[in-house]
Amino acid sequence: MLANVPFIAFALIAIIGLATMIMRKNIIKIILGLGLLEGAVNLFLVALGYRQDGIAPIFTNAPSTKMVLPTVQAMALTSIVIGVATMALLLSFAVFIYKKYGTLNSDSINRLKG
């Protein structure tokens, strides 16, 4: 049961993120919902790679040889970096929209439609 806690946390955070994206009208909140989803996926990645007592494969002065290939950790790091870039881009778009349209309500950001 205890081993499943990270996965339950992942599901909760992901659902909160998804619900935020669908139910909130403000673009900033939608972007923050995306941030939550991103965090959830990163948590899922790291939780997948956790092995009890496993250590990183650095052989110098290694206390044991029970080592884990840190692929998911590398993936999570990369994904965090990508997430930062995405967030920066999306928020800068939101700033421009606010400047030009005077609103951040997603119901009004629909001048392109039909």
Partner: peptide, 17 residues
């Protein structure tokens, strides 16, 4: 059809989900 193409970003996400 045109009323389905609302242009609202939240609706785009809903269709994807």
């Amino acid at each position: 059809m045109i009323s389905l193409h609302t242009g609202n970003p939240a609706d785009y996400l809903l269709w994807l989900f």
